[in-house]
């Protein structure tokens, strides 16, 4: 078995562990009681929920993002890079048979994500407020994801980086349920509850 194939198997095992870990987190969440709101609503809850996942995520929707557009864009690009790197991982076994246009696009998207991550690390190190809020896990999580995206970029630049990309992918997948990265699961529930609360009160949506 080649080294690349071995790494591929390691990534699949890591994916299983990552999904299993997230599944365990999800189970822990769903095992908690849910107390539906029985107060008569002023507005339809569904509108608030739709708003929470759509217009409510736009930069003009919140004072915080209107005032801090650049950090907002940085965050968007960072997360875009994450999706691009996940897609890179998914299609990586077929790299050599992909259309030629994919590689530059993959390189740019993962690279932008990595740049966004690097800026995020710098902000967390040099911004006094963020530094005060942060724990080692915060630095490590964003550093890991940034380096992973950089490895994705390297993978697109030169297939010889495949091993490193797979190694970092495996590490990242295992880290998801154990580190702050797991907020990717809770995000959907948080926005749902947010939309539910403000939709029922006809404040948003």
């Amino acid at each position: 078995m080649s080294t690349t194939a071995l790494w591929g198997w390691i990534v699949l095992i890591a994916l299983g562990l990552g999904i299993g870990g997230l599944g365990w987190r999800l189970y822990g969440l769903l095992a908690r009681p849910y107390r539906p709101d029985r107060a008569p609503p002023r507005g339809p809850a569904w509108r608030g929920v739709v708003y929470a996942f759509t217009w409510g995520m736009m930069p003009w929707a919140k004072e915080s993002t209107r005032r801090h557009l650049l950090p907002y864009l940085r965050g968007v690009l960072f997360h875009l890079g994450i999706f691009a790197t996940l897609a890179t991982l998914a299609i990586s076994p077929w790299r050599l048979s992909l259309p030629a246009s994919i590689a530059p696009a993959g390189l740019v998207l993962t690279g932008i994500g990595a740049a966004g991550g690097l800026i995020g690390i710098m902000m967390r190190i040099f911004d006094e407020r963020l530094r005060a809020l942060s724990h080692p896990d915060d630095y490590a999580a964003v550093a890991l994801v940034t380096v992973w995206q950089a490895a994705g970029m390297a993978f697109w630049a030169d297939p010889r980086w495949t091993g490193a990309f797979y190694a970092l992918s495996a590490l990242t997948l295992i880290a998801i349920p154990l580190t702050k990265i797991r907020h990717c699961l809770y995000f959907f529930f948080s926005r749902f509850f947010f939309g539910l609360f403000y939709g029922r009160r006809a404040v948003l949506g």
Binding site: L29, R32, Y34, R35, F189
Partner: peptide, 13 residues
């Protein structure tokens, strides 16, 4: 409950 646990877990600081 679910709402509180979500609020405690989701913060990205």
């Amino acid at each position: 409950d679910r709402r509180l646990l979500t609020a405690l877990e989701v913060c990205a600081r």
